[in-house]
């Protein structure tokens, strides 16, 4: 291989390697800057979809960041959002349609729909969350007072 050929080879190698290195540095950066779908690192509000999709006298457990919430649409169509962690031993509470109360399956603690502890071992009420309806959509936010 002549001197010229050798130089060309090195130049080619330099270009390929340079381009490759550039791409392997650039690719992660571009990917990094692309926003991820799964939202934000911390949560201050939660969209729950259309109010009209929520059946009356129904309930569900949703996630508010790291906290489980119980969302209840009572028989009058009023929405309640409360912490779903029982204040006794942190079990997940449920809504009893028969008793019209929130109950905890672990030790049969009872709360009313405002979260007040009524009977059984729970020492404190369940924390309430704010329910806002914007354009027919349910939005849950933390209450200001802690």
């Amino acid at each position: 291989m002549g001197n010229n050929g050798r130089r060309k080879f090195i130049t080619a190698l330099l270009s390929i390697g340079g381009l490759g290195t550039f791409i392997s540095a650039f690719y992660p950066v571009v990917k990094y800057m692309t926003p991820v779908k799964s939202g934000k690192p911390s949560v201050s509000s939660l969209k729950l979809g259309k109010l009209s999709d929520f059946a009356k006298n129904a309930w569900e457990i949703v996630r508010f960041g790291r906290k489980p919430l119980i969302i209840i649409n009572d028989e009058n169509g009023k929405l309640h959002a409360l912490s779903a962690e029982c204040t006794h031993l942190d079990c997940i509470v449920q809504y009893s349609k028969e008793e019209k109360m929130i109950i905890c399956a672990c030790h049969n603690g009872h709360y009313d729909l405002n979260g007040k502890n009524i009977s059984g071992p729970p020492p404190r009420p369940l924390k309430q969350y704010k329910v806002n309806i914007q354009n027919g959509e349910i939005i849950i936010t933390k209450k200001e007072d802690g």
């Binding site: 390929i16 381009l19 490759g20 290195t21 392997s24």
Partner: peptide, 9 residues
Amino acid sequence: IALLILGLA
């Protein structure tokens, strides 16, 4: 591989 090529060059 890319870094190796560049290094070699």
